[in-house]
Design a protein around this nucleic acid. Structure first.
Lengths: 339, 339
DNA sequence: CTGAAAGCGCTTACAG
DNA sequence: CTGAAAGCGCTTACAG
């Protein structure tokens, strides 16, 4: 047996010897679908068990066309939605027998080197949380030659999968909720102006509003989804127009910032004086301190779909990327005044 | 060149051929410290560049005693400290040239299988966020035969590294802060009673209090670090004793729960009527809505130390595990009434 | 169904 | 410093 760092590693050879079969036979019993007679299978299995054998995934990967490693490429966790999405993703990957390898791109560091380092391990797929990533990193992923599943951001090419929440639907859901409960002067607080998601959520909101004869009163893009941005946006927006009675934010963290600014600085009560809606439905939204009525991005459904696509890409043949929109859900809590 | 999934993979052989040298020579120029003449190195490098060659990390790992893969074993993200710590960890790992492979243990799923799956990839080290992990998972890590660096929880054995915040110091810092600003009736809200961290923080708090002739008035362990637990603990605790004027919580999320319960249900003002302190210093603590005075767990220092230990374990020889305590820091904001 | 052989892409002694 | 050879642990055609 191979001796590595004080640990004896059991190999196919050891198991073959103990079971009295060839190494091929051992390999086959650990390869689902490979031909092995019940007898040898049993002897191999018992030998393997006795020795504590598990196939070396590295060696196996070297001869196969896949590694079962999936890279998850992310920016910084500057928004509670990201760890939330990330958590759902890793759980689903595990369920699908994949191991997630994490690539975080630092805004200060090299935007592509970490991606290459993951590629060195021949990851099967790059799952890219593109929303929070520098353009160069996104480009590196697309050009990597490895299947890419892009989350929350559309891209110029049509060679990668794109999965997005149905942002127009989300905007419409927010608009309907606010209008149906009698709000009249509405505003939208977006994140980054040049990100599709923020734009689409705003469009969906405005279009639905227009359809109900209630033009949008104010709209501001604050560059990011952060709490801080929401805080500042609320202050400047409500100073400009004190009659606003409902705000839809493009993310929950923006909404939290808006709520705190409104309560602490403007002395308004939520939802009596002003209603606030968010988008994401991170766990914090349910905290009684916020009780945020929001539009849920169904992270589990997104993760499920990602897993489906990983499986799709893993079988050889002609491949067509897709652009998939995942329906959003209205979650009613206490931050919107009722009728 | 090897053809894999429509992607041409360049190998040492290709580079060797183009550069007109042996494959060994190519390998050596990519091995820091290996003997290569300036001439061949240069020819190899330019050939490699022309071909877009990068060594296959899988193949390389097969012949070396390490893989540069580090497993991070975690429970669920049920507390904002976890993604926060996790983020710091992965960034430092990248800086140290390591790739993090994530292992999440589901409370519903098998507590050990995911760990074995990571071990199949011959990870160099298991970094275990033990605090949030089932005992069986922790045991599996310890028995894995791979170096283990355990975070936030002590263990029975002395064969693994343990790194902990200096919880006694943290408790003392909280006590001093509260006493120096004139508080008189203090309480402690811990997480799980049988977790070292919660116990130590409480001990440090109580001992320091006693040293200042101010016995603790109430102490409750609520089983977890969650917001929800804090919320409920505050309600029951303050119903029992309305004169409490300061609470130290074993985590920020507990503190957020306490604050919201106190403000929403008990109608008390923070910090005028009641002071609240937390521990962790997650980003949310700085949000104006909470403005939590807290004891920081220095995640970057912890991550740095973890990286040091990974390097320590990576060189062969006699190895001694350590138990390291990382000093905590008082962060003053607005949730503690001043003098 | 089974085993011997070749090969995955790399590195490491071993001679020179 | 350099190259030929052997080997890391596995799997995959290929004969049987």
């Amino acid at each position: 047996m191979a001796r590595v760092k004080n640990v004896i590693r059991v190999t196919v050879g050891d198991v073959a010897e103990l079971a009295g079969v060839s190494r091929s036979a051992v390999s086959r019993t650990f390869t689902p679908g490979a031909p092995v007679s019940a007898g040898t299978r049993e002897r191999v299995l018992s030998a393997a068990k006795e020795l504590g054998y598990r196939p070396n995934a590295l060696a196996r990967s070297l001869t196969q066309s896949h590694t079962n490693i999936v890279a998850i490429v992310m920016g910084e966790f500057d928004n509670p939605f990201q760890p939330w999405m990330f958590d759902a993703l890793t759980r689903h990957l595990h369920r699908g027998g994949k191991m997630p390898m994490l690539v975080t791109v630092d805004s200060t560091g090299d935007p592509v080197e970490p991606i290459f380092r993951a590629l060195d391990f021949r990851v099967d797929v790059l799952v890219v949380a593109a929303g929070s990533l520098p353009d160069e990193s996104v480009a590196a992923c697309i050009e990597s030659g490895v299947p890419v599943i892009m989350l929350g951001r559309s891209v110029e090419t049509d060679i990668v999968d794109v999965v997005l929440s149905d942002n127009h639907m989300a905007g419409a859901q927010a608009a309907t909720t606010l209008i149906n409960s009698g709000h009249q002067r509405l505003a939208y607080v977006g994140g980054s102006e040049n990100r599709l998601a923020s734009k689409e959520r705003g469009e969906g909101f405005v279009q639905a509003l227009n359809g109900m004869d209630c033009p949008l009163s104010q709209m501001v893009f604050c560059g990011s989804y952060s709490y801080q941005s929401g805080y500042e946006a609320a202050l400047s927006m409500l100073t400009l127009d004190k009659k606003i009675d409902g705000i839809f934010c493009a993310s929950d963290s923006l909404a939290f910032g808006v709520m705190d600014a409104v309560r602490d600085h403007l002395g308004l009560k939520i939802p009596q004086d002003l209603s606030v809606m968010g988008m994401d439905d991170v766990p914090m939204s349910a905290w009684p301190g916020y009780g945020l009525t929001t539009i849920r991005q169904p992270v589990n459904k997104i993760a499920e779909f990602v897993l489906e696509r990983i499986d799709y890409w893993s079988v050889p043949g002609e491949k067509k990327p897709v652009l998939q929109r995942i329906p959003t859900e209205l979650i009613v809590r206490n931050s919107v005044r009722l009728g």
